[in-house]
Amino acid sequence: MARARVHIRLKEGILDPQGKATLGALKSLGYEEVKDVRVGKYIEMELENGSKKQLESRVNEMCERLLANPIIEDYWLEVED
């Protein structure tokens, strides 16, 4: 069984309200060293075996079509076969 991991988060430059709220909470707990927080999503998938290249291309397509919204989000993916 192959596995894919997809990380999605708002693009740089787009205000992330959840990240800002989390930053404020961390600071109020005394973690003054935290300078910025961005909150994203993590998706794991189990896939039928195939060539790594082909699986990556399919998962990339899934991100473009459904998993991420390319207007506001960036994504990274890794595939383990």
């Binding site: 708002l10 787009i14 205000l15 309200p17 959840q18 709220a21 919204n69 207007i71 506001i72």
Partner: peptide
């Protein structure tokens, strides 16, 4: 918006 019939995207309210 998600279907592309209108331009742009919707995000969480800034006040959460």
């Amino acid at each position: 918006l998600e279907s592309g019939l209108l331009p742009g995207a919707m995000m969480r309210n800034r006040g959460l």
